[in-house]
Design a protein around this nucleic acid. Structure first.
Ligand SMILES: [Mn+2]
Ligand SMILES: [Mn+2]
Ligand SMILES: [Zn+2]
Ligand SMILES: [Zn+2]
Lengths: 129, 129
DNA sequence: AGATAGATGATAACGATTATCGTTATGTCA
DNA sequence: TGACATAACGATAATCGTTATCATCTATCT
């Protein structure tokens, strides 16, 4: 039986308190800063447990996994390659066309991840010639 | 000036000889098996060089990067979580809607990656109750 | 030939994540 | 309540893909 321990509850609270996308290290540091230090292995185990219960969501970026609250509708992400800002978006038609494409290839879909890369409004502005 | 050395040409030849998606280790082993051993660092450097010249393409999966020939139209991938099989697909409308979504959020797109997970036809068949 | 710029290969280093293991907290039941 | 079983914790070692170092090599130019 999976336990929702003090540490896991704290991780969940931090994640649910914003719309940020956290990595394990950031969460460990946040808890440390809040006076409640936590072992890094506990963070990883806790995040895996919380995700398997559907209490949090995650996205797998090139180097690391990032976690976010699960109480939002499904969405995908655009990542600014300059400042790291993550913008969310959802497009119903894209979702449907994905299902169609999968069906066409005989694939039984269990999930997908669409990540777009580029410059956010801020960074695009700053890098004009 | 980047050089297209014997090793890099060999990597390119292997990749261009099929539609597979190779990781660095598989390529090193393939060259070894072909009698032409190669240092793993040389493989990584060679792949990076070839990709930066646009001679090969890559996709970043959860754990590792995989390389494929670049002489195909842009496409995205479905990965079978059971057997690892990678199926390719492309959907013009999805591409266009992505551009629209990016524009709407003020993002200047430089790339994107859509990966769908699930069971391929084979594996779905094998896992029927 | 000598000089120069990359490239190579062995290997150390890195960063994210997982495994190990002794210790600790929590829930169940006599 | 007390004892036992089970899961979680935390420190730390290990793993894995990838990159950095550094001492040769190699091709090319003068
Ligand atoms: Mn999100
Ligand atoms: Mn492909
Ligand atoms: Zn930005
Ligand atoms: Zn399969």
């Amino acid at each position: 039986m999976v336990k929702l321990t003090t540490q896991r509850q704290a991780l969940l609270d931090i994640i649910n308190a914003s719309h940020r996308h956290w990595d394990a290290d950031e969460l460990a540091r946040a808890m440390s800063d809040a006076g409640q230090s936590i072992g890094i292995a506990t963070v990883y185990r806790g995040l895996a447990a919380l995700e398997s219960q559907g209490l949090i969501d995650s996205i797998q970026l090139a180097d690391k996994k990032r976690y976010e609250r699960a109480d939002k509708a499904h969405h995908d992400h655009m990542v600014c390659t300059e400042c790291g800002h993550i913008e969310e978006f959802s497009h119903q038609t894209i979702e449907q066309l994905q299902l169609a494409a999968a069906h066409e290839k005989g694939f039984t879909l269990t999930g997908h991840q669409l990540v777009m890369f580029g410059l956010c409004r801020q960074c695009a502005k700053g890098s004009e010639s």
